[in-house]
Design a protein around this nucleic acid. Structure first.
Lengths: 343, 343
DNA sequence: TCGATTCGTTGAATCGATTCGGATCGAAGC
DNA sequence: GCTTCGATCCGAATCGATTCAACGAATCGA
């Protein structure tokens, strides 16, 4: 394990007294090599700590054994859920002996994104924070580079994706609230910028909210809210002031939860006695809430792993019809929802 | 921008009616090319959307234009601060047109880490969550691959690193508490496993705590605490029960803060009237605390950017003596500390 | 004993880009 | 008219690994 001055396959071959091809076959096992020479070569490899140069291998094989993961541009802090996706994707990739490259890109015109895609630096790409109309998706389609989206576009047919059924789940939450007798409910959505940019979950949650509200004959109010505690606090304060009749809140904005909690505390409101809260958030947030949140737990780990699986399928068989998966986890009954009561 | 069946430099040369080298010189500008041909070539490049193959370029140049970032192994959730480092490193790298590869590795024997290091897949490595004795550091040293650590080992001489002066800052916090008249103070450290593993901040914070406590003639108690809200709650409950005389807490465990706050609320203690809290945490956490935390704000952004800068220096000039930077941000006076009062 | 088969190994081509020495050509100098 | 000299451009080597056709030697059957 000392510092071999040169660590290429030729040097190994020279020291072992064989040709480069034989060394290669020992590494890959794609052709039989006699036990004697294989041991001799392996000894040299172990001695100098040789590992084939990744770039050379990638060039020759046409595979980099690296996945690209496009995350929201830096500056904006990643939400806990996004971080969860990153972690689970990285872990799932590691299990398959794949590396992960990060690209912080918003639009299609990003240098980092362009390098990754056009430079054929990765075998496939996972896209996060997808918008209903997404430049990056169209860009990836025409490069014929396999990719999977976490979240889905407006027209996801023929694409590989994993997503949460925000529409269905928020709808289910509203029905749950209606069953409890609530008549005036509110939706706390993601940030206004995200929704304006056509961010899928925001739009789909709103659609599910509105349809369920209509179906049950409730009155519903929806507000956008920045992805952080401070915004959550202000948002709930304004909501309570403007719509005092509201007795229940559904949300998909987990990052705002701590602030929402604080605003409720400050207003002297007890959950669920005075106000019910529910929504679609990561399990971690639901359980950290006080009281524990009745919510649909987004299966972050599964989704990241599934995205990697789908991507690998696309890579190994580019012709195959891309797979997808829509998650619709059950709404876990915890302690944050209760019968409606006039405030 | 259509899908050129082949996108290599040879194809571009053929279409433009020149040799491959000329195309290369147009791209790099390392030799003069006549205006006429340069325009002709550029037109072809733009038309087919050509970009040089990253693997081939890396092979030839011996540089991958990629940085490796070693993060704590998945499974354990990353703390907010770690996430901040990742984000700022990625952003700083992007500014330099560098890509970032993630490697979730704890020990030295990790496959992902080995691939990254031995496969020469990256030009340099940034290491997070450094321990006082760290296998990965010794491993990197003998491969002669430039690297920078966020945090530092017990013997950091000759290494490139950025770190927070936890010892000095916690000491300053204790002095601040002593100035306010507190006589019984507590330190809430990071998790017991981390400290047992020789995690630097844990040890250095403890050392600073103990020396300051001794210097001011206080009584001090230190406890370890898991990096999450639940652990923080339990930790403070036990602390209050076992040491009722404690009137102030210093901490470096930001992830535990929400839980600590809840435990204090439950105990009916008002900050800072009944109990003072201070410590070293990311600004974000300090400001989200209620009341805002008097604390030294860890300059996460700067540290990530600085780590990239130091790494680039190591890469461009491997002979130079590695730089380092010890951050000692001021303790921002907010509202969570006040004069001691017997509970 | 000789041709056929198998096993182990080798040499050379290849992936796509960079780079250096040299070739080509027109213009300038004598 | 012939050499000289820039200005341009080209050809070939190179980076490190993989892979295929082929070759020598040993084994086998007839």
């Amino acid at each position: 394990m000392s510092w071999g001055s040169m660590n290429n396959i030729g040097e190994i071959a020279r020291r072992a007294g064989v040709s480069r091809s034989t060394v290669s076959y020992v590494l890959s096992g794609k052709r039989p090599v006699s036990e004697a020479t294989r041991r001799r070569i392996q000894a040299v490899i172990d001695e100098v700590g040789y590992r084939p140069n990744a770039s050379a291998r990638a060039l020759r094989e046409g595979r980099t054994h690296t996945l690209g993961l496009v995350i929201p541009p830096a500056g904006r802090r990643l939400t806990d859920m996004q971080l969860g996706f990153v972690a689970s994707v990285v872990e799932a990739a590691a299990r398959e002996d794949l590396d992960v490259q990060l690209s912080p890109s918003g639009g299609d015109h990003d240098r980092s994104f362009a390098r990754m895609v056009d430079g054929r630096r990765v075998d496939g790409v996972i896209l996060m924070e997808i918008r209903l109309e997404d430049d990056r998706v169209t860009r990836l389609q025409q490069t014929r580079l396999p990719f999977v989206t976490i979240g889905r576009t407006a027209q996801p047919a023929g694409l590989a994706w994993v997503d949460v059924d925000y529409a269905g789940l928020i709808s289910r939450c509203v029905h749950h609230l209606a069953d409890l007798g609530h008549e005036h409910v509110a939706l706390v959505n993601r940030s206004a910028e995200l929704v304006a940019a056509g961010y899928g979950p925001g739009h789909r949650a709103l659609a599910g909210f509105q349809s369920a509200v209509a179906e049950r004959g409730l009155t519903g109010v929806d507000v956008c809210c920045g992805d952080n505690a401070a915004a959550g606090g202000g948002c709930v304060e304004r909501l309570l002031a403007a719509h005092p009749q509201v007795t229940a809140i559904a949300t998909i904005n987990e990052a705002a939860l701590p602030g929402m909690q604080r605003a409720l505390d400050d207003a002297g409101l007890v959950v669920p006695r005075d106000l019910s809260i529910t929504g679609v958030v990561a399990k971690h947030w639901a359980e950290d809430f006080r009281p524990a949140l009745t919510a649909a737990d987004v299966p972050i780990e599964d989704m990241g792993a599934q995205a990697v699986t789908l991507l690998l399928e696309s890579i190994t068989d580019p012709q195959a019809v891309p797979g997808h998966r829509l998650y619709s986890p059950p709404v876990s009954l915890r302690s944050s929802t209760g019968p409606a009561r006039i405030r």
